[in-house]
């Protein structure tokens, strides 16, 4: 499936095997920074509220929850795993269990258990994708459906409420004026960037995504690396869900709906190729920042929700089409 569009054209078919044209890569990277600056400039110009501490803190808080998922999703795209569509289920797993288990085992163990179980779901998807060789879309769609069903069944299909106000206060507290959630997101992003860009695991991830056969020949444990990307995403969305649950102090089964597409949007707009083998956490986060700021400006300007969706959809299609066009020209 990944090669489907590439196979349609000889020109694009070979892009992943050669280095991107330098100026094209430069332009697409600088392009995103310019776009972010443009949105900030426009926002500050048209809305008096936009460039205030209060608004920016709000943007960062809502960004943090998706951002943690974005870090995991970057690994999935880079390793050539297309996308993890089980994210809504693992977020619900994190949110529901971190609240539902509180009365039984205490808030901290509940938090850890929720993330651990979400990671376990990621492991199941990962084994199906990496070892059994099932298409990631099918595997994560199926596992997501199952996990969501089990989580709902375990709490009887109702909304779960928090019982421990102290943890809610802790999550909502601020350090030097920055919400704790944002700090957790920054820590996750830094750790993700270190893992992907500086460690052997990251090199294996790029090798597997770029050319699985060559990677296997070079003794990279491709199957484990592929499975690992889904475990990372499971853990990330479990963490994201647990934080979301603690912030809201309530969790519905459908709490994570749409997060998978928001995360994919950010990663793809950031220029991470869905073909695998290229991308970085900072770029994905830059994509997220752009999308979030743009959404914020639209909300402040009173743009209606459907139009916002329309703009985001056009943005995804446009970003990827531009990326393809730039690569083709840059490589020629």
């Amino acid at each position: 499936m990944t090669d489907a569009s590439a196979a349609l054209s000889e020109e694009t078919g070979s892009t992943r095997f050669r280095k991107d044209g330098r100026w094209a890569a430069l332009l697409s990277r600088a392009g995103l920074s310019i776009a972010i600056l443009a949105v900030i400039a426009y926002g500050s110009a048209v809305s008096p509220v936009f460039f205030t501490t209060g608004n920016l803190v709000n943007v960062m808080t809502s960004m943090a929850i998706i951002g943690i998922v974005v870090v995991g999703m970057t690994f999935v795209l880079v390793v050539g795993g297309l996308a993890d569509l089980s994210v809504p289920a693992t977020i619900a797993c994190g949110a529901i269990l971190s609240l539902a288990l509180q009365p039984m085992i205490g808030p901290v163990p509940a938090f850890v258990a929720a993330i651990g179980l979400a990671g376990l779901c990621g492991l199941v998807s990962g084994v199906l994708v990496g070892y059994v060789g099932i298409n990631p879309i099918i595997a994560t769609l199926g596992i997501g459906t199952i996990v969501l069903g089990i989580v709902q069944a375990s709490v009887g299909g109702v909304i779960v409420y928090g019982t421990n106000p102290e943890t809610a206060m802790l999550v909502k507290s601020r350090l030097f004026g920055i919400p704790t959630i944002v700090l957790i997101f920054l820590a996750v992003a830094l750790a993700g960037n270190f893992l992907l860009a500086r460690s052997w695991w990251g090199r294996w991830t790029f090798a597997t995504g770029g050319n699985p056969k060559a990677a296997e020949a070079a003794a990279v444990p491709v199957r484990a690396v592929k499975a690992g990307a889904f475990v990372i995403t499971g853990l990330c969305s479990g963490l994201s869900g647990a934080l979301l649950g603690l912030t809201l102090q309530s969790a519905r089964p459908l709490v994570g709906t749409g997060y998978e597409f928001s995360a994919i949007t950010a990663v793809v707009v950031g220029g991470v190729s869905i073909m695998g083998g290229a991308g970085s956490v900072p770029r994905a986060v830059a994509g997220l920042v752009f999308v979030q700021l743009l959404t914020n400006v639209m909300v402040l300007q009173g743009v209606r929700t459907p139009v916002q969706g329309l703009v985001l959809g056009l943005l995804i299609a446009g970003a990827v089409a531009l990326d393809v066009a730039l690569r083709r020209r840059g490589g020629a």
Binding site: F261, T305, P306, G309, L310, G313, L314, I316
Partner: peptide, 24 residues
């Protein structure tokens, strides 16, 4: 076909676009 966008990404985008159009 024309813009060579991966079908997964392309239809993800149009999923949002068509749904938004429906709401609009």
């Amino acid at each position: 076909v024309t813009f060579k966008v991966n079908p997964l990404v392309a239809t993800l985008a149009t999923m949002l676009i068509f749904r938004s159009a429906a709401h609009w």
